[in-house]
């Protein structure tokens, strides 16, 4: 279980500060797939970063009773000047995972071939998404944090993601920030709409989507 209690987060803006999250509460149980909805800049990524421990909230508490992935997105989690293989090696090392297994999985999942020997900064966003997913799926987590990245890439990659994430790991919890209502309706069983710094929880995804579309 993950429980966010009254999360507040603000960022410096000019001479003052801009509050992005103004007291968000959220509980995620094992196996739950929660959609994060909200307009651009509403604070979806901010909330995901707080849950993943990338940034720390100004106030409030996050209780983590399961292992949580780092936020999977286009950047973060890897080093641009290192190659795909070096990044895999690094992740394997800090998570105490076997590099050989990691390498095999990454090669197989990303299908990037020789590009894995190139620095990540030369990758397109689709290639980055492939690598980001491969690295985090190679380490098994109870809860995956997915920030927008899910719907990039070609058909083949989307199919693979779907299979690895929603079929093979259907018992895992997920927090998915996305603007793609089709996928959200398809895979999520709860939704949180972030608006004006507050989170409104919906047990019915359809209802949340309607509210979001009416914003």
């Amino acid at each position: 279980m993950i429980r966010c209690e009254n999360i507040r987060k603000s960022y410096p803006a000019g001479h003052g500060r801009r509050a992005v999250l103004k007291g968000v509460n959220l509980t995620i149980a094992r196996g739950e797939r929660v959609a994060l909805l909200g307009r651009n800049g509403a604070g979806k990524s901010t909330l995901i970063k707080q849950i993943g421990g990338v940034e720390l909230p100004d106030s409030g508490r996050i209780v983590r009773h399961m292992s949580i992935s780092w936020p999977i997105g286009f950047n973060g989690g890897f080093q641009g000047s290192l190659t795909g293989y070096d990044n895999a090696r690094f992740i394997a090392r800090i998570y105490g995972h076997s590099y050989v297994d990691m390498r095999d999985f990454v090669e197989d999942f990303t299908e990037l071939g020789g590009a894995l020997r190139m620095p990540v900064k030369t990758y397109s966003s689709g290639m980055r998404a492939r690598l980001a997913f491969a690295l985090s799926l190679a380490i098994e987590f109870d809860c995956y944090l997915i920030d927008e990245v899910i719907l990039v890439g070609d058909q083949n990659f989307q199919r693979k993601c779907h299979h690895e994430l929603f079929e093979k790991r259907s018992d895992r919890a997920m927090i998915i920030a996305s603007h793609d209502m089709h996928t959200i309706r398809d895979v999520c069983n709860r939704a949180v709409l972030i608006h004006d710094g507050h989170g409104i929880t919906f047990d019915e995804v359809g209802e949340a989507v309607e509210r979001y579309e009416a914003l």
Binding site: G52, G53, V54, E55, I68, W70, P71, N75, G76, G77, F78, Q79, I91, I94, Y95
Partner: peptide, 9 residues
């Protein structure tokens, strides 16, 4: 900064 994505760092 990108290393802060991994909580053990």
């Amino acid at each position: 900064g990108s290393l802060m994505y991994h909580r053990q760092v």
